[in-house]
Amino acid sequence: MDCGDETLPEREPLVPPGAAYFPVPSPGATRKYAFVLVPGFTLLAFSSAVEPLRIANQLSQHPLYQWRVLSETGAPVASSSGIAVAADGPLEALDRDTRLFVCAGNLPAKAAAPAIVAAVARHSRFGGTVGGICTGAVALARAGLLAGRRFTLHWENQPGFAEAFPDLTPTESRFEIDGRMMTCGGGAASTDMILSVIAQDHGAEFAAMVSEMCLRTVMAGVEPVQRSSLAVLMRSRNPALIAVVKLMTDHLEDTLSLEELAAAAGCSRRHIERLFKTVLGETPGEFYRGLRLDRGRNLLSTTDLTLLEVATACGFGSVSHFSKCFKARFGTVPTKFSHRNRKRPFVR
């Protein structure tokens, strides 16, 4: 069954030769994928999704998987690195058993193009599996498919996504598979997601061999979250310091006083001050302000919020105070930064 109109002619599954071999006793029918590339898509995330499929075919010497590359018009699409990738054709109706992924990147609004959103909504409506790679989840959100679902997108773009879609909450996981909905944070997480699918299709041992061929020694599920722990990032295992920084990151808009932070960590204010100066080389206030300004820079880069809305979202009482602190940290006023970098990344 398909979604309506005439479908694109199918490319023959690629089964490249290779020295390594891992037989799959009951391969079943070839499973089909379609990757929709949008301008500025992340090349690493896209290739990290496709390559495990190619390796699976190579290892088994059987057409386990077939894939096509699509674009809105059928023209080549430039990635975020400036490298263009050719498409097999334009967006068309797909067989219901094809898994359709939207591959996006640092320009999330491109994933919300009306034709792409319509294609995703149509494919889902006719029973097909849909997914988002990196910021491809924006297309699924615009299509109204994420309510009540577990989903994710790259951590860098999650703050902007939350402002554009306040009723939807992405997880911190590297990837999520919720029924006929598949999303990942991009980068190497694309490989994690596809390996989990290969394991479900053809067994954990075969998926582990594909992982080995990718020169990966850790299977999906061992590293479930996108970002390193605070302990790793700060190179400290002091529980009080980690607890305070965690509270700060959770309260960037509704800021907490140092007394409140210290009390929650079960320490004195003076002890917290000593910890921050010794381990991080900053006072707690300086560190906290830096976190809030970093969030402001992120929101200016990834949303179309006004300067007042950004300042408020970062816990600043006025635009003037926010602008002064922003310039001190980044060497430019937020209006100039915003003008250089923003291209309406999210569409509300």
Rank of each mutant, 00 (worst) to 15 (best):
E260R: 15
S26L: 13
T135R: 07
G28R: 10
F161N: 00
A204S: 07
E6L: 00
V333R: 12
F126H: 07
S124L: 03
P345C: 05
T191N: 08
S47Q: 14
G179S: 11
E163P: 00
F165L: 02
R122Q: 04
A34V: 12
L64N: 01
F326E: 05
V347D: 04
E223M: 15
M1S: 02
A311I: 04
L308I: 10
R329D: 00
W67R: 04
H321Y: 02
M193N: 07
R31G: 09
V120H: 01
K32P: 03
L8D: 10
T30N: 06
L293H: 05
F322G: 02
Y65R: 04
E223R: 13
L241F: 06
T303Q: 03
L100I: 02
R340T: 04
P114M: 12
A199K: 00
A139I: 02
L153M: 01
F161E: 00
E260I: 12
G187I: 09
T73Q: 09
G315F: 01
S26K: 14
F22A: 15
R270M: 13
L275I: 06
A328P: 13
R99P: 00
D97Q: 03
Q66T: 00
S268A: 06
T191S: 13
S124T: 08
L195T: 00
A188G: 05
D201A: 05
A231P: 07
V36W: 11
A112F: 05
F161W: 01
A204K: 10
G160R: 08
Q58P: 00
D254M: 12
F35T: 03
S48E: 12
R348N: 02
S79D: 03
